[in-house]
């Protein structure tokens, strides 16, 4: 992540060049010791932003798949379970879910939960409803003949899904999964409200001590921008690579 450190700096110099007297870039000026310290303080949040988002998306993909499968059943009861889960989870704002998981869940379930895992859990649950819909659409887009062919060589449900249906579905839902990862990176900023020391929380803390919200939040914007552009580029590269392995 070395460029993530360099790019905002380049942008900063560009901005400061044409700024009027109201900007106070000294707070994050990398040529002074205090500016350097502040920048490092801000960038330190990157670790938790990434850790939160990546852990949450991994869990939400698994959760989403587990929720999607009953939605594809021919019988009614599993489909109803899927519907209820998706509708309920989609109706709860992420911020509310974060607060409820962190402050409410420990009392209901009689467990202690760290800020990090409360954040991961809330983000993952919230995203899993969308993942479930993405998986359902992806799996449904696989031709019916593929299910029948799998049946005709006597594959069981798990083998059919694992070797025949999901590999084809995942190729089609990869762009949507990439979008969800970008979305997750942005939503992880909300976990700052319960004290997670990620990018946004770090910026808030620095604003409180330095009183330069304009400059500090500008750095924050650039941090997210660079991060998300890099992730988008990576997803596109992955898509191209997977597309090349199967020119259908």
């Amino acid at each position: 992540m070395r460029f993530a450190y360099l790019l905002p700096l380049l942008a900063l110099f560009g901005l400061s060049g044409c700024s009027s007297g109201s900007w106070g870039w000294y707070v994050v000026n990398p040529t002074t010791p205090s500016g350097q310290r502040n920048l490092m303080f801000l960038l330190d949040g990157l670790y938790y932003t990434l850790a939160l988002s990546v852990t949450a998306i991994l869990i939400s993909v698994i959760l989403g798949l587990l929720v999607a499968l009953p939605g594809l059943a021919t019988q009614r009861p599993p489909r109803i379970i899927n519907r209820v889960y998706v509708e309920v989870v989609r109706a709860v704002p992420i911020l509310v879910l974060i607060l409820w998981v962190y402050y409410g869940l420990p009392q209901v379930a009689d467990i202690s939960i760290s800020v990090f895992w409360a954040g991961v859990l809330a983000l993952a649950i919230s995203d899993s409803a969308f993942q479930a819909e993405i998986f359902r659409a992806g799996i449904q887009s696989v031709d019916r003949g593929q299910h029948e062919a799998a049946h005709s060589i006597s594959l069981g449900y798990v083998d059919k899904m694992r070797f025949v249906i999901l590999p084809q579905a995942i190729k089609r839902i990869l762009p949507a999964l990439g979008n969800q990862l970008v979305y997750m990176l942005k939503m992880s900023s909300l976990v700052s409200v319960i004290g997670m020391e990620e990018l946004t929380r770090r910026a808030n803390e620095l604003v409180v001590t330095e009183y330069r919200p304009l400059e500090i939040y500008t750095v924050l914007v650039i941090e997210y921008l660079v991060l998300i552009l890099l992730v988008s580029a990576a997803v596109r590269w992955l898509e191209r690579r997977m597309g090349a392995s199967d020119q259908r």
Binding site: D143, G145, Q146, E148, A149, S152, I153, S154, L155, G156, D159, F163, V164, P167, Q168, K171, D246, R248
Partner: peptide, 23 residues
């Protein structure tokens, strides 16, 4: 089948061995 329904993401070999190995 009329539409062949081969598994497009698998090589011919894997198409043929999937059933014997898994089922």
């Amino acid at each position: 089948f009329q539409q062949f329904n081969l598994f497009p993401h698998l090589s011919i070999l894997d198409n043929l061995t999937l059933g014997p190995v898994r089922a």
